[in-house]
Amino acid sequence: MTSTSRPAWIEPPNPLVTAVKGILIGLILLVMIYPLAYVILNSFAAPEATTSAGLIPSEWSFSAYTTIFEGGVVLRSMIVSTVITLVGTALSLAVTATLAYGLTKTRQLPGVRAALYLVLLTMIFSAGIIPNYLVVKAFGLLDSYWALIVPVLASAFNVVVMRNFFMQLPRELFEAARMDGAGELSIFLKIVLPLSKAVLAVIGLFYAVSYWNSFFNAMLYLNDSSKWPIQLVLNSYVLQGSAMSSMNNTDMYNLPSSQAVQMAVVVMATVPILIVYPFLQKYFTKGVLTGAIKG
C-alpha cells in the first residue's frame, strides 16, 4: 500500500457528491468575492462610466482617488483610524496578556478565582449605552480619542482564550526558571510571551479589526468631525450622502456625489485591514483552537 492510497475503512469519494461540493463552494466564493470585486473595479471607473451596472467599467480613471485625497477628509480619517488601531491594539494586548497570566494563578494567589468569575460575568451581563456614556463623560473623555480605546481596552472573551493558552504551556519551564531565581515578571516576559506568539497574533488581529471598524463608539463620543475615523466618514458620505466639511471647519467643500468616489471611499475603509489577514492566517488554527479547547 502506497502512502497516497486510501485506507480500507474509508470509502472512495462519490464523483457526484464531489461535483456538488465543488459547485457549492464555487457559488459561495462567487457570492463573497463578487461584491468586493465590484466595489474595487468600479472605484477606478470614470465618472460618466459608473451609471452602468456592469462589473468591469467601460472607462478607467483614477479621478475618484485623486478627488478624495485632494479633499483631505478621507486621508485625515485614515490617519486617525491607523493611530487608534495601532495604539489601541498595543494597549489591549498588554492589558489582556497581563490579566490572562494573572488569572492562571488560581491555586497560588487568593482572590484570583473570584476575579476570574467577574471576568466571565461580563461575558453574560454588560452595561447599556447610557451607563457607558455617563462613565466616559465622568472621566472627561468625550471628544477624545481615548474614548474609543479605554472603554474597550480588554475583551473578556480574548482574556479567556489567552488564559487557556497560557494554562497549556509546560509548567516545567516555569519551575526551572524559578529554581534559577527568575521572578514572575521575568517568567512572563522571557518565557510566556515568546511561547505565545500564535495567540498574541490572533488576539491582536481581533483587537485591530475591532478598533479599525469602530463606528458606533465614534458616533457616540466624538462630536468634532475633524476627529472622525474612516468608518464614520464612510457612513456620513456613502450612506447619508452628506457633504464633508474641511478639517478646520472654516472652508466648506463637497466631494462630488459620484458612484466611483463612493466606491473609492469604501475601498479605503476596507482594503487596509484585509491586507493584514494573509500574514496572520497561519496563526489562526494554533492560536484560537489551542486556547479554546481546554481550561
Rank of each mutant, 00 (worst) to 15 (best):
M78W: 09
A94V: 15
N164C: 10
F166P: 07
M167T: 09
W146L: 15
V80Y: 00
A115R: 09
I68H: 05
T122K: 11
V159R: 07
A90T: 06
G111W: 02
A138G: 11
V152H: 01
F125D: 06
Q168H: 12
T106W: 04
T98N: 02
L153S: 11
I79V: 15
V80H: 00
T66G: 15
G111Q: 07
Y145D: 06
T85W: 07
S126V: 04
W146H: 01
F139T: 13
I124H: 09
M78L: 15
L86E: 06
A156F: 05
T96E: 09
V161P: 01
R76I: 09
V160N: 12
M78G: 10
F139C: 10
L103I: 15
P110G: 10
L153E: 09
M123E: 05
A100R: 03
W146F: 13
N132A: 08
L118E: 03
P151M: 09
K105V: 04
R163I: 13
T104R: 02
L91V: 11
W146S: 07
N158C: 11
A97S: 14
L120P: 00
T66P: 08
V161L: 15
I149S: 05
S155M: 10
T106L: 15
S155W: 12
A138V: 10
A156V: 07
L75F: 03
L93R: 05
V95L: 08
V95N: 01
G88E: 07
I124S: 13
M78H: 04
A127H: 03
T85V: 13
F69V: 05
R163D: 06
L93N: 06
L120C: 08
G102M: 06
A97K: 02
V150C: 01
T82Y: 03
P110F: 08
W146T: 11
S144R: 13
R107V: 11
L75N: 01
V152F: 11
I84K: 03
V80C: 00
G71C: 03
A114C: 01
L91D: 07
S81F: 07
R107I: 13
S77F: 12
V150L: 12
F125P: 07
I124P: 09
Q168P: 05
Y101H: 15
T122R: 11
G88T: 12
S155K: 12
G72C: 05
A100T: 04
W146Q: 04
A147N: 07
N132Y: 04
T98P: 00
L141G: 05
F157P: 00
T85E: 09
M78I: 14
I149L: 09
V135R: 08
W146R: 04
R113P: 02
V161Q: 08
L116A: 02
I129K: 14
A97T: 10
V159N: 02
P131W: 13
V95F: 11
P131R: 13
A97Y: 04
F165K: 12
L153F: 07
K137L: 12
G102L: 06
